[in-house]
Nucleic acid binder design. Structure first.
Lengths: 126, 126
DNA sequence: TAGGTTTAACGAAGTTCCTCGTATATCATA
DNA sequence: TATGATATACGAGGAACTTCGTTAAACCTA
């Protein structure tokens, strides 16, 4: 029963920070955000309030400074967004997506190639 | 020199149709669109005008009914959007994306597995 | 050529997204 | 307790996106 909306561009940037440092306060998240550009504190606050409203993040309001954390893990979000892209641009075929991704590749670490091979073998077993 | 904007959700739906039937008139594209839901003709027209303005589609205005076609091929767009997702959610690592995609997989055709293997071998050779 | 059809152009309105200023509450401490 | 610092809440405004109605031009064809 996962009907969370897909995060927007800005929301995803915030989630990326939160997956590193959460649980965290607005202040902590904001400090990370302003390392890559100007934004006022209230903008960060408002974004988190909206994201909470959408269910993208949970918050603990026991203390004066609320504590936020993402509802979904990074991995779950990756899966969700890959699934979305797969359906919207690859005719629902994940292998078509993978083929295209590998085709436009420059360099991949040997350890990662091994990991991909292992996964392929697993998929093949079925 | 590819600074085309990323197509929006609705624009991508239109592009998917165009990759099948273009070059095509607004009327032809619209006929396809209304197979999956109600939309008025002028909405389709406006979308194509905006997409032309953005450079997402080219058009030939010699005849009364203009002829449209996508600026980028489906493959090029797939590459562009995979690249975007890779940067925004996978820390710039395409192999991380591939691993995640294969991990959340249901069933893949043997022929596709072979194709992926072949690509892997090519990547590995470098 | 007059009337109906098809088309493009344009602007307006509703929605979502993002940003920020202002108001208000809470807390620490001098 | 009064003052300053820090926090939340709220709403307004601009930009992008999407939809559609109205108008005008181009084109059949009777």
């Amino acid at each position: 029963m996962n009907s969370l909306p897909k995060p927007t561009k800005t929301e995803l940037a915030i989630l990326n920070i939160m997956w590193n440092i959460s649980p965290a306060t607005v202040r902590q998240i904001h400090e990370e955000i302003i390392k890559n550009g100007k934004t006022s504190y209230t903008t960060t606050l408002k974004m988190l309030q909206v994201m909470h409203q959408k269910g993208l993040v949970n918050r603990n309001s026991e203390h004066k400074a609320h504590i936020y954390e993402p509802t979904l893990s990074k991995k779950e979000t990756q899966k969700q967004m890959l699934d979305d892209l797969k359906n919207r641009l690859f005719g629902g075929s994940i292998s078509s997506l993978v083929i295209q991704a590998l085709g436009s590749n420059e360099k991949t670490k040997p350890s990662e190639i091994d990991e991909i091979k292992a996964l392929l073998a697993k998929v093949e077993d079925k």
